[in-house]
Design a protein around this nucleic acid. Structure first.
Lengths: 352, 352
DNA sequence: CCGTATGCTGTGAGCGCTCACACAGCAGCC
DNA sequence: GGCTGCTGTGTGAGCGCTCACAGCATACGG
């Protein structure tokens, strides 16, 4: 009685090891499988009494709809893929979390794939991975030049949303934090405190984020009639911030220390703070420091860090909205999410 | 010619909008669909020449096997679910990344769900979510008491692996960082530098991790004939570390500052460093501080933090191994992953 | 009293794949 | 020659669901 295969007229005598199917529910409720399907899909034309019988049969059997069978016929798996970086960068992690939360609220499953380097083969391998899985759409959390190129070059059957670039050609939808506005906010904050010599330590220039932040700083400077000079190119790490901080101090014999530094992210700012502290340069008395991201713990850096605070949760939510719109075949305007500034002890008025 | 439904004898005339199916490949290659399936599944009994024909038909058509159809008959989706916390804690994030990397290497898809609070309903909702999706197994990254209870109480059709607890009853497999050994390592490091008054700031006691770390500290103290006293109960945040640091300083009139503090994680340590710096207490001259996790940037805290360094990548890999073993129906011994100690400037010899 | 509309339910096909099995061809062996 | 075994391939059923459509009531207009 527990044969793996059963004759057609024997369907209800399926092995006890097998999960119940729609036909089992139908039998228990005394209706056809189609009626069960109608109840499950919220079809209106079902008598309330029938609906009740079906629902109670479902809970009695612990029935769970088989997604594979459903996906086979509807051609929708209800899953989306998210490509993100394989290092725990704060922004991408927060975005992923918010995106997942929003997705679960809509009954969308979220699959992840990480990428070690944002090169074309790496990104396209992730896209392939998801297409093999049969996702309905893919979200790529990256504002890296090559990632953008990889996505734009890739013709896929499913919609793609990029988180990072502020807008893109080629039918790729975008959602982004307003990096530019955030950087201007930070720079203006420093200018309002009387700073005129404000150095920018940028992220790696192949990142769109890094360039947008640098542009925001530059434009804020120019608009106040200040000479921005060249930003110091870094990456996103504290080690590089530390190295650049040390360099600024070393060369201060020739070129005096700036009165303020705007770092492209909090890790860079952390490294700068470390370098200044180690060399006895007082922050914010001698140098003000402002970061970007508001990472966990930045309120307890030494001193607590003034930093630009993106609304990551909003980014994740808007991203899912874009994806849902794309799945429904709608058009999508690029979305920009606002940023705030959290002022802490690392920035203050000029004191020279 | 592009009707949605086609007659059986008309299968090859499917609409151009539809992805190619195995039968299309079969037609192009001049074989049966079954032979295509054999090639795809690496079945040995296929003539090399036939295999070549099939492979070239596959690449010519851009064929991709339909996972839904496959899952329907094999009862395996090839996907696993991962439940993790919806805040960007360092350890869980790193574990997820490593797990995903390992999974992709094995052709396993990784679906994620986050949990806001580790209570029974929350955890079980995530498990339900994954069972609805039809995953082959679930990994729960949590060493929280209630999460453990939720998982143990939940009778699921699929294997569950917990990352965090060092071992568990009820058929739940476990993979964990050796918290206990890491905490002993950190404590012994301090003892070897001559410290005798070593305070422990613990994580929230409902976390198994927190208790294991506290036990490691306690045992190391006792084995050296030192009196551990009661640990100070914190949570995992820098704010709490800051508060506790301030309290230690305030009461130092009555009870002198300890010469060393072992914090249950790096965030707590960061808060402690902040409190000490703000009050002019020199680290490590007056107090040594050791953390746990080796988070991004801990090398640039002020001063750079001595901390226990778990091998997160190994944790993720071992976790997937456990899952694969479970899927194959094998038995599984609890796995413990080793920890190291990264010594930096925040700890040093006693100077009193 | 018939024809049409409307609410509720059932029937059957088919999504694209894998599994079990059939079967042809060829070798080797009494 | 006939039996066995092996290799390579094809045939057909069925996984559990949704979709299109058929049916059978009851209602309502003429």
């Amino acid at each position: 009685m527990t044969r793996a295969r059963t004759a057609p007229d024997d369907r209800t005598a399926r092995g006890t090891d097998r999960a119940p199917a729609m036909s089992d529910v139908a039998q228990v409720a005394g209706v056809s499988h189609q009626t069960v399907s109608r109840v499950l899909n919220g079809h209106p034309n079902v008598r309330p009494e029938t609906r009740e019988r079906v629902l109670s049969a479902i809970s009695q059997l612990g029935y769970r709809r088989n997604t594979a069978a459903r996906a086979l016929v509807t051609r929708r798996t209800g899953a989306i893929g998210v490509v993100t970086e394989d290092s725990p960068l704060y922004g991408p992690t927060m975005t992923l979390i918010a995106l997942e939360n929003a997705a679960r609220g809509q009954g969308v499953y979220v699959s992840v794939a990480t990428v070690t380097r944002w090169d074309v083969p790496g990104v396209q391998a992730s896209l392939e991975h998801f297409l093999d899985q049969g996702v309905d759409g893919v979200v790529v959390i990256a504002s890296h030049d090559e990632a953008v190129r990889a996505v734009q070059d890739y013709r896929s059957r499913v919609p793609v949303v990029m988180v990072g670039p502020s807008e893109l050609d080629g039918g790729v939808r975008t959602v982004a934090v307003n990096q530019y506005a955030g950087a201007r906010l930070a720079t203006r904050h420093l200018i309002e405190h009387g700073h005129t010599d404000i150095v920018h330590v940028s992220g790696p220039p192949v990142w769109l984020d890094a360039r947008a932040r640098a542009r925001g700083w530059r434009d804020a400077m120019l608009q106040s009639g200040l000479e921005p000079g060249e930003p110091l190119a870094g990456d996103w790490t504290a080690s590089t911030g530390f190295r650049i901080g040390k360099e600024l101090i070393e060369r201060s014999a020739a070129r005096p220390l700036p009165t303020a530094v705007f770092a492209a992210n909090d890790q860079l700012a952390l490294g700068l703070l470390h370098a200044f502290a180690e060399s006895g340069v007082s922050v914010p008395r001698e140098v003000s420091v402002v970061g970007f991201d508001d990472v966990e713990g930045s309120a307890h850096f030494f001193p607590p860090l003034t930093t630009v605070t993106p609304d990551w949760a909003a980014l994740g939510r808007r991203c899912l909205e874009q994806m849902v719109a794309a799945l429904d075949g709608g058009t999508g305007e690029p979305v920009l999410v606002r940023t705030g500034l959290t002022v802490r002890a690392s920035s203050g008025p000029v004191r020279r």
